[in-house]
Write a protein that binds this DNA or RNA. Structure first.
Lengths: 191, 191
DNA sequence: GTCTATAGCGTGATAGAC
DNA sequence: GTCTATCACGCTATAGAC
């Protein structure tokens, strides 16, 4: 950012997410966010109430998307295999489209405070419950290997929550990710 | 810790790792470490030089173990499948035996500074290189599905680096992890 | 709506008595 | 080797001029 842009909450969130990803939330000061935006730190407070509010904004923008899409996918009348593939592709889409917020969501949620932290953890638990019930359906219908569903969830979600790391290094294209990842991830799950 | 123990560097590292895991490195003050040990913060400095040194100690204890074991596994004359299984089991062992240090290694390495951060990243890259060359051997010998090795690494390492999270919730026993995880993880990889 | 100046606080670390 | 006291610093956030 060289010239002085029109400051807005949205711009502050976007810029902050980039810095949070690079250095993590506690290492990013209000001064450093302001510097990136070519203003003084005190100017930020005309658009946001606190540093916490920035973190909450970045994270819950994505939480809302994840919760909406898992709800939609859950309620579709399609095969379990297709539901899982849809979930995987949604993760890839979000990680590719908003890599900074995605990284912040996954790395910096611990720095949420009070109610917001509780809300985040509840949402995450609910997401995992939805996924678990899809998996249990798949186990019952013999579409999915009969293993502990908790382990399967962990086996599915761990790579998905790290896509931003691996994608950053440009080891592979988004297209390659989208074709190879579902096959590879689901290869150990389906039967 | 109720009574006053004999302070030592080892005890400080162990106690700190527990706190780092709970709250992350920047949120753990020297005062809070001291409180946990029933001493004053200034007393810690008779056993360690700085807060940074604590983090480095916790992390590199495990880095050394990982680097030694990957080296050993690499050079064994066994099937690729068995090498991968050994690597997975080593991760489980370390995560079960030293969950606090393991969590700190995976979550808080970004807070390393200067040379130590560089050294950490080099080690991690070297570890991944070793794993990659095992995988490439497996692809050549047709033991492993022909996919982008970088994606396979990511698919293998992501769950392994999160074992402490899932194990903490006691969803499954260590034994269950050791039997189910390799089968599940490798199911998508082997052919 | 942005600025300068500063309040108020918590931090890592040190000096020096015991 | 542990303590009390304290320094120096960087942080979030606010007050008030423009």
């Amino acid at each position: 950012m060289d010239s002085k842009p029109n400051l807005s909450k949205e711009l502050i969130l976007k810029t902050s997410a980039k810095l949070f990803r690079e250095k993590s939330y506690p290492q990013v000061s209000m001064r450093s966010i302001a510097l990136e935006l070519n203003v003084k730190a005190s100017s930020l407070y005309n658009h946001i109430q606190s540093k916490d509010e920035i973190l909450e904004g970045v994270i819950f923008q994505l939480v809302d998307i994840f919760m909406t899409t898992i709800e939609e996918t859950s309620s579709k009348s399609i095969k379990v295999h297709d539901k899982l593939e849809e979930i995987i592709k949604t993760h890839i889409d979000i990680a590719v489209e908003s890599p900074d917020s995605f990284a912040t969501l996954n790395n910096d949620w611990i720095y949420l405070k009070g109610d917001k932290k509780v809300e985040f953890i509840s949402s995450r638990n609910l997401y995992e419950k939805k996924l678990e019930s899809i998996l249990i359906n798949g186990i019952n219908s013999k579409e999915i290997r009969d293993a502990n569903p908790k382990i399967i969830i962990y086996q599915l979600l761990s790579p998905l929550r790290n896509i931003h790391l691996w994608n950053k290094k440009n080891y592979m294209t988004t297209q390659e990710l989208k074709t190879q990842l579902p096959r590879l991830v689901l290869g150990g799950v389906l039967r």
